[in-house]
Amino acid sequence: MALLAQSDPAPAPSGGPRRTPRTIALVGIDGSGKTTQARVVAAELAATGIRAVYRQNAGGRHWFGRMATLVGRTDAEDLFGRRGALIVESVLRWLAIARNLVRRLAHREAAVMDRYAVCQYASLRAHGARPSAERFARLAYRLFPRPDVTFFLAVDPEIAQERIERRGYDTETMEYLRTADAAYRSLPEYPTFVVIDANGTPEQVTKAILAEIGQA
């Protein structure tokens, strides 16, 4: 059922119309279009008079990957080791989410989140971390409320890889993209996601997301 959007993101009174979700999260594998869609959806909502903003919750993996190449390493895992890279990613994503939730409360805005806590759980699974690592992450991230709606951008790994190659600043193997997709779908939160077909054009994907929010 679509979520009816209003200009005031505050909760609706009992029996009243549904309001714009205060926290909208876009998640999915690399190349699914999370950043593009989060920016556009925030702009589209803002254009209707809703106080909506784009917020990024990156874990720094791409940034450290670029830094690694400058010092002769292949990627973040080569720079920090697999366990070290996952720890750094988990900490940076936690800090980003905490900062953005504080901003949301302070500014009374609707935050369109580019990634959220579930992205870290999926990353840990995709990188073969021990179950204890995910349990620890869940304890740390349990401070954060679940988004009002989480959109999972479902994309074929082949299409995702083509998009990653076109942007030109990083690479992902087909094996990892398939593993990451399976990791998201294995999460206990997955049944609560609103799955969006992200194989189409950016405009088609945006239209599908806005239709679910009630702004199409």
Rank of each mutant, 00 (worst) to 15 (best):
L3S: 09
L3R: 13
L4K: 13
D8E: 15
P9Y: 01
A10E: 15
A10V: 02
S14C: 02
S14E: 15
G15M: 12
R18S: 14
R19M: 06
R19Q: 11
T23Q: 08
I24Y: 03
I24C: 10
V27R: 05
V27W: 11
G28S: 13
I29D: 10
I29C: 13
G31M: 10
G31K: 04
G33W: 05
G33N: 08
T35A: 04
T36W: 11
Q37C: 05
A38K: 09
A38E: 00
R39Y: 05
V40R: 14
A42F: 03
A42Y: 03
A43G: 15
E44Y: 05
T48S: 11
G49F: 08
R51V: 03
A52F: 00
Y54H: 13
Q56A: 07
Q56R: 01
N57I: 01
A58I: 02
G59K: 01
G60S: 00
H62Y: 04
W63H: 08
F64L: 14
G65A: 12
R66E: 05
M67V: 13
A68W: 10
T69R: 15
V71F: 09
G72L: 09
D75T: 00
L79Y: 04
L79R: 11
R83C: 02
L86N: 10
I87F: 08
I87M: 14
E89F: 10
R93Q: 12
R93Y: 01
W94I: 01
I97R: 07
R99Q: 13
R99N: 06
V102T: 06
R103F: 02
R104N: 00
R104E: 04
L105T: 00
H107K: 02
V112M: 00
V112K: 00
A117L: 03
A117F: 00
S123H: 14
S123R: 08
A126M: 15
A126S: 11
G128Q: 05
G128A: 02
A129F: 06
R130E: 08
P131Y: 04
A133V: 15
E134R: 14
F136P: 10
F136S: 09
F136W: 14
F136D: 10
R142C: 07
R142E: 12
L143W: 14
P145G: 08
P145F: 08
R146H: 13
P147W: 03
P147G: 11
V149I: 13
V149D: 06
F151E: 09
V155F: 08
D156R: 14
D156I: 06
P157R: 02
E158I: 03
I159L: 15
Q161W: 02
I164K: 10
I164H: 06
I164N: 10
I164Y: 05
D170E: 15
T171G: 04
E175S: 07
Y176I: 01
Y176R: 10
L177R: 10
L177A: 09
D181W: 09
A182K: 14
A183H: 10
Y184S: 03
R185E: 14
S186K: 08
L187A: 09
L187R: 10
Y190R: 00
P191I: 13
T192V: 02
V194F: 05
V194W: 06
D197M: 12
A198I: 03
N199Y: 04
N199E: 08
G200E: 09
G200N: 06
T201M: 04
T201R: 11
P202H: 12
P202G: 11
E203R: 07
Q204N: 13
I209G: 09
I213D: 08
A216V: 01
